[in-house]
Structures are given as C-alpha cells and as structure tokens.
Amino acid sequence: MSLIFGAFTMGLILSLLSLGMLISFRMIRFTDITVDGSITLGAAITAVLITQGWSPWLAALMAFWAGALAGSVTGVLHTRFKIQKILSGILMMTALYSINLRIMGRSNIPMLDTNSFSDGMRALLLKLVNNADRINVMGWQVSLIDAAVLIMMTFITVIVGFLLYRFLLSHFGTALRAAGINDQMIRAQGVDHHGMIVFGLALGNGLVGLSGSFLAQYQGFADVQMGIGMMVWGLASIILGEALIGKNSLGLQIIAVVLGTILFRLLIAIALRWGLNPNDLKLVTSLFVFMALVAPQWFRKLSGNFQRGKGHA
C-alpha cells in the first residue's frame, strides 16, 4: 500500500514540474530542457539552506526564484542572442550542472533529521491521533510522515493549480497564451512577445524549482544527478493527461496535467513492482513519449487511407 501512497505523493510533487512545463511546452510552445537542470537547482538550494537552518518554506521560495532566474536566462539566450530554442535549453542545463555542484559543494547532500514543509501537518496529525505513529486510512496503515506529506502536497498542488488557472485567464495570461500561438498577432496588439517568452520560461522553471525543493524535502536528499530525464517525464505526464481528459478548457488542461502526472507515477510504480529493471525506466519513458507523439500521425494516415481507399495512386 505504501507503494501507491508513495506514487501519489511523488505524482503530486512532480505535478508542479508538469504544470511548469505546461506553460513552457504548451503555452509558449518552447521545448525547454532547462527543466532537467532547474529541478536539481531547486533541490540543491533547498538542501543547502535547510541544512543551514533556514525555514523549509523560505527555502522553497528561494528554489522558486532560482528556477525562475535559470528559465529567464534560457529565454534571453533565445530571444536576445537568437540561439535555437532547444540549444538555449541545453546550454543552460549544462551550465546548471556545474552551478548545482558549486551550490552543493559535493554531489549529494543528505537531509536527515532536518526540518521539512510537512512538519506542521505532522504535528497536527500527531495531536489528532494521540501520538500514534501510524494512522488508519480506509483500512490501510499509513505512516504519519507519509500522510502529512500527502496532505500538504494536495493543498499546495490545488493552490498552485488554482493560481495558475486564474493567471492564465487574466489579461496578462491571455496575452502570454496568444504569444505562443501567433507572435505576429500579439506584437500587433502591442505586446513584446520576446518578453512573454522570457516570462513564460521564468514562471515555468520557477515551478520546476519549487517541485525540486519539495522533492528534496520528501526524499531526504539532493543529488546532482536527480534531474536527468525529468523533462521527458514531465512531457509524458502532460501527454498522458491530455489523452485521458483532453484540453478543451484551461481548467481541464490543468487538471489533466496533475492527474496525468499522478497516473504516470502509478504506472511506473506498478511496472517496477512487476519487475521492470529501474535502469530501463528512462528508456521505457522515452519510448512512451515517442509512441504518444507518432501515434496520432499513424492514426491520421490510417484513417486517411480508409477514406481515400487503399492503393490510392
């Protein structure tokens, strides 16, 4: 049972990453691989600050700002210096690897017995269940710490999702979305679309940094390698969510991304339980994204063939 619980918690934590990528990948249409570096950046900053006695919430805030800074550098590389989108991200991601090592001072920082964002909730739960260390959730025995993290992450995800929803419906957010669809149109409406790209990447990577912060606090360590493949995971989650729920409205799209991320973590957990070698995880994820990207083309081609009749000259 702790498997499903853990997958849920991880899914909620990483849904912040997926929401960040929803802005970069879907809204401003920027395939942004900075994500691999900025999630580690968020974790690294959090680990250093918390082990130095900072409040977990302040550390998370700093992780957000650091991610936003990294994202805006990627944006400036693309808009100001005319470097291709994907290459701007690769440059920043590579630079972040060294920056993260510099911040941490070594490749791994353990965070045992340090403060965490779920401490308050844990104390509250302790009081509610009279100092038992496990609680009963619908017949399952769950450790108090896991329950506290899950509750907090649910709150945080709902708040972030709601704020994002309000933002995207605002005048500013509407302009941001239009900048991703038609840059000529939005310039003609008096909006600096380069500025919008930089802002979108900053906000997106800020959320990714925040995700990294909570991830480090949940896992109990920050590791310089932890970001590898995160961008593809986020992509897979977005695609999965959209396939299941669709993207007919902004609200649905946000819900789809969160549920897609949770479902994807569940699928991974189940696959691992069935004996999938963890080393193969990234290969399987890449294959999944590949399939998800080409399947619609195949279907279109197939149905096209049927409509035209086979053997069409």
Partner: peptide, 15 residues
C-alpha cells in the same frame, strides 16, 4: 479582449 487593450499594460484581472 487582447485587441481592446492594444498597447496598454496587461493586468492580472480576469480578461
């Protein structure tokens, strides 16, 4: 709504 505010500051109010 994007055109109504052509060339103006874009606020965080609902569009």
């Amino acid at each position: 709504v994007l055109a109504i505010h052509r060339g103006q500051r874009r606020s965080l109010r609902t569009a």
